[in-house]
Simulated scan of single mutants.
Amino acid sequence: MTGLRVAVIGAGIGGLSAAIALRANGIDATVYEQAHELKALGAGVAIATNGSRVLNHLGVGDALAKVAGPVTHYRFRTWQAEPIAGEPSTLSFGDPARTWFLHRGEFQQVLADALPSDALRLGRACVGATEHTDGVRVEFADGTPVDADLLIGADGIHSRLQGKVSTPTEPVSEGIMAYRGLIPAGRVDGIADMRASSMWLGPRQSFLAYPVSAGRLLNIVAFVPTNLNVAESWTAPGDVTELAAAYRGWDPQVSAIIDAMDSTFRWGIYDREPLDRWSSERITLLGDSAHAVTPHLGQGANQAIEDAMTLAVLLRGAQPDELPERLRRYENLRMTRTGQVRSQARAAGRIYRSTELAPRAQAEQLQAILDSVAINTYDAQQVAETALVTA
């Protein structure tokens, strides 16, 4: 390890990935998480090729593949069960052979296990940070401070650290919420295709299902309109009866999947307007703290993983006095990329829920969006390596 000391706030996907990537590049990084334990929250997450490429390089690919859902193909259908791009679909959120469909809790645990035990500190709630000439002092609720050369805020859409580097922006709703849930595979035997990521597109709403936990569970995400201020949370309780009513008249397969659910929870869908900057001299942001994105391209976690690798490569070999310039490079590389993904994710959501587009037009427009964000070809490490030697 170099003499550089990095404190990462938040043990989500982005924070843990950042610590692993930093340590792989010779930098001493420690993650501080306010929770006293890493709970297996009931939510699925898809790690596409742009994310899996990074995680394979960091040595956690085999462990993640073991707990991934066995997806071999995609299905995109209208709400009345008409295929919009053939079956198996010519559309995809990433090459299924290189995409992992994961239970978030299992994913988080694999990443945590890849760190030395002393590199993850639980029960440490960050309450502030003060920059000074030689670094940054991080303040915690327990009264015990930590001094570091660099502080990375990976503390989510409601980031406490965002205001340290930029004028905070408020979460923005697109008038959509999601019902989420997990169903044991045995309850949807003969109903759901447990080797597919399946999406149904309908007027003003959509429905997504894919297997996680090595095929033991089916993950459900049902996007519906709302004029309520729904919490940006994976644990707010929902009502299965209300969910079923929202999809009455849809493809009978959708109704049968909902009938197999015992419980659901509600998830408010938000992103943020882009920040003017992500970094100060000794503090920077990563993932949703910097660029929250709606989930319609499955790119939220993937963009945080790209951030993690980009930042780690750009900090390789840096001395403390070089940090401000290295952070500028990181910001310059990532702001354009994540801004494009945010705008295209919103556009994809509008196409899914269109009341006007014919299925063929939906397929064509979605393909153009997927091509534009280069899910299968973007290589965050290579982009950062090139920037490191050419700047």
Rank of each mutant, 00 (worst) to 15 (best):
P116V: 01
P320E: 13
S206C: 13
P225N: 05
Q367W: 10
I84M: 03
V54D: 04
E281N: 15
G105R: 07
I157F: 01
I351A: 10
V240P: 09
Q80F: 05
T338H: 03
H158T: 00
T390I: 09
L297F: 09
E331K: 13
P203T: 07
A65T: 11
V136S: 11
I152Y: 03
D113E: 14
S117F: 00
L297H: 09
V110I: 14
S117K: 14
P88A: 00
V31W: 05
Y330M: 11
S206Q: 11
Q344D: 14
Q344T: 13
V224D: 03
G51A: 10
P359I: 03
P184A: 14
V188D: 13
D155S: 05
S206G: 01
A125E: 14
A29L: 04
L285I: 01
H73W: 04
G186F: 02
A21R: 12
A256T: 02
Q80V: 00
P211G: 03
A236I: 05
E82N: 00
P171I: 11
D288S: 04
E87T: 07
T284Q: 10
P96C: 04
L120M: 07
E131M: 10
A308L: 05
R216S: 13
E273P: 01
P83T: 03
A97F: 01
H73K: 07
M177F: 08
L217Q: 14
A348W: 08
A363C: 01
D251P: 03
S372V: 02
Y74V: 01
V254Y: 06
P70L: 02
G44D: 08
N302Y: 07
M335E: 11
R353A: 13
N302Q: 12
T99W: 12
Q109I: 00
T336M: 12
A318Y: 10
V45F: 02
Y74A: 06
A119C: 14
V240T: 15
A361G: 01
A345G: 14
A48I: 01
E131C: 11
H36Y: 11
A292C: 13
M335T: 15
H73C: 02
S173W: 04
N25H: 15
A348I: 05
V373P: 12
A260Q: 04
R328Y: 07
G215L: 02
T338E: 08
R346H: 15
Q381C: 09
L366F: 09
W267N: 12
L243Q: 04
L357N: 01
K39W: 08
G143H: 09
L22Y: 06
D155V: 05
V45L: 14
T169R: 15
E139T: 12
V341W: 09
Q340H: 15
A112Y: 06
Q299V: 04
A301Q: 11
R328V: 14
R316S: 14
T386K: 11
R75H: 10
K66Y: 02
A19K: 12
P145F: 07
S198H: 09
R121P: 01
A43W: 00
A304V: 04
V54E: 07
L228S: 15
E139W: 02
A304K: 12
T355N: 08
A65I: 00
E82V: 11
G12T: 03
A18T: 15
V8E: 06
